[in-house]
C-alpha cells in the first residue's frame, strides 16, 4: 500500500485536488476522503503535506506488480 490510512479527515477535499495522480476522492456518503485508486499512488506525499489536519499516513511500499498476458 502507498497511502495507508486517512484518520481524522474533515472532508475539506484539499487532498483530492492536490493529488497529481487522482488517487483520492471524497466518499459521496460520508463526505470524507477515501483512497479510491491506490494503484496509481506515486508516493509523493503532496496530499499529506497539504492536508490541514494531517490525517494522511503513507507507507513506502507499493504492491508488487503482476504481469498478465491479457487484461
Amino acid at each position: 500500500m502507498s497511502i495507508n490510512s486517512i484518520d481524522g479527515c474533515i472532508g475539506c477535499g484539499t487532498c483530492v485536488k492536490t493529488c497529481p495522480t487522482d488517487v483520492l476522492r471524497l466518499d459521496p456518503k460520508s463526505g470524507k476522503a477515501v483512497i479510491k485508486y491506490p494503484a496509481d499512488c506515486q508516493i509523493c506525499h503532496l496530499c499529506r503535506m497539504y492536508c490541514p489536519v494531517d490525517a494522511i499516513s503513507i507507507s513506502p511500499e507499493k504492491s508488487v506488480p503482476v504481469i498478465v498476458s491479457w487484461g
Binding site: I10, G11, C12, T14, G31, R48, M49, Y50, C51, P52, V53, D54
Partner: peptide, 29 residues
C-alpha cells in the same frame, strides 16, 4: 491540530487553520 505544522514541512499552520474552520460542508466541523 495545526500546531505541529510549525515544526514540519507542509501547509502553513494558519492556512491549515483557516481551512479547518471554514469547511462548512462537513457536519463534523
Amino acid at each position: 491540530i495545526v500546531f505541529p505544522r510549525y515544526f514540519e514541512s507542509g501547509v502553513e499552520p494558519m492556512e491549515a487553520f483557516t481551512t479547518l474552520i471554514t469547511t462548512y460542508n462537513s457536519s463534523g466541523v
